[in-house]
């Protein structure tokens, strides 16, 4: 990585700011990890790999809903962008099967709906 100037900083901003679809994010702060987010993240990574899905799996910090950790945000083409809460290994697999592969939402686990 080279040192940035004002111009190259703006270039990174523009390149990186393009809206992207088809990603999953797991909240990996202390509150999330304490509730098992690391297992959920690992499970999701494995399932995505196993099924060869074109989905990026990433991590983020605490979104505030500590009572519903682990939180998993899913943004997939053609399905509303939602945050699932109280996710465990089993529901993580369900998210991949139902939401990512079959483009259907899951019952009882949605804690927030994003976007328009």
């Amino acid at each position: 990585m080279s040192k940035l100037t004002r111009e190259t900083l703006n270039k990174i901003k523009q390149e990186h700011a393009k809206p992207r679809n088809n990603w999953i994010k797991v909240g990996m702060s202390t509150c999330g990890i304490a509730a098992g987010a690391d297992i959920v993240l690992e499970t999701i990574k494995q399932e995505v790999k196993k099924r060869n899905l074109a989905v990026t799996v990433g991590q983020c910090g605490c979104a505030g809903k500590c009572y519903a950790e682990p939180l998993v945000e899913v943004c997939i083409d053609g399905v509303p962008q939602v945050i699932y809460g109280n996710v465990d290994k089993k529901s993580a697999i369900e998210i991949i099967e139902r939401h990512v592969a079959n483009k259907k939402l899951l019952n009882d686990h949605i804690y927030n709906v994003k976007g328009k």
């Binding site: 900083l9 990174i12 901003k13 990186h16 909240g27 605490c62 979104a63 945000e73």
Partner: peptide, 26 residues
């Protein structure tokens, strides 16, 4: 304060830059 918490990957500086990070500094 929590504008980016739960949205960006805290371990990736580009995520922060994409959401106006370091613009104020510049």
């Amino acid at each position: 304060v929590l504008r980016n918490c739960g949205i960006i990957d805290p371990e990736n500086i580009d995520d922060y830059i994409a959401l106006d990070g370091y613009q104020a500094l510049s």
